[in-house]
Design a protein around this nucleic acid. Structure first.
Lengths: 148, 148
DNA sequence: TAACAAAAGGTGTAACCACACGTAAAGGCG
DNA sequence: CGCCTTTACGTGTGGTTACACCTTTTGTTA
């Protein structure tokens, strides 16, 4: 049957394999960050906000290559736990996100945990492989975004 | 400030970059599969079930490197639309998944769409880069799963 | 300046994801 | 045979993801 043959190809689906790896490594990092009671997504957002100091939701979403509405909802748990603050800017349309002191504290606790997890991955993968991986991932993002 | 310096490193977080690429490419494939009214996750599951013919939920989850409970819920929309059937086996604990004829039909329609999307990515990335990417992704999955 | 377009953001809806916990069936063993 | 462990699976809960659609505010232009 023709379909059966075509299906064999799907093993090499870039999307499937990326999603699979994404799931696996997310569990790895989530587990590593457990002592800080942070998910890796939350850690990522917290880092981005800290780095930016004060930033609108849309701009932050662009930085993270994340849908604006996704970010809005992902900020909710962080806001509820007092890690970030969201407030209107002088332009009444905008909302600025900034880190609260409680957020800084949890980030201090999470950073070494992240570092350890990252180290483990880099060590097993090898520095060069990781560099290549990050480069290809970056290209993949670019490709995915062009040509709607 | 020490924290600020540490934070600079997080740009190279393997997890963040994998998740970012995963989001981007998922949108790319989802868009490509839109004419077949399938998400890439659903396409993936449909392919895996078709390939396996008839398979328990747990085994299928292992194949897809996906949490069993996630798969249970991901099957729901496919079941609701009559693409797959889930029924108990002779072992009363197990539930076997198989493709319905409606599922085969939609898969026929989706396959060329997937092929086109995949082709675009491979062409832009280059065959060798893609091969390296898949290899590294596979390693990443293995690494993430060892050492709890 | 009034009208219209662009920018920033939220909500409804629906899917994806997994941990913690619970249930029932099957298998193994004293 | 009765007890215990393992296996297979579902649900509750809470977070992640994004499309479609809507509102408000700002900027532009006829």
């Amino acid at each position: 049957m023709k379909t059966k043959l075509d299906i064999a190809n799907c093993q090499s689906c870039v999307c499937f394999n990326l999603r699979k790896a994404s799931r696996a490594i997310t569990q790895f990092y989530d587990h590593a960050l457990k002592p800080a009671d942070l998910k890796v997504t939350q850690f990522t957002i917290l880092v981005a906000v800290t780095r930016a100091d004060s930033i609108t939701i849309s701009t932050l979403a662009k930085h993270l290559v994340m849908d604006r509405t996704t970010l809005t909802r992902n900020l909710r748990p962080l806001e509820a736990r007092g890690f970030v603050r969201v407030e209107a800017g002088s332009d009444q349309r905008t909302r600025y996100v900034s880190v609260e002191s409680e957020g800084e504290r949890v980030l201090e606790r999470a950073l070494p945990l992240w570092q350890a997890a990252q180290q483990k991955i880099v060590k097993k993968l090898g520095v060069q492989s990781m560099r290549d991986l990050l480069k290809t991932l970056s290209e993949t993002v670019s490709i995915s975004q062009q040509a709607p």
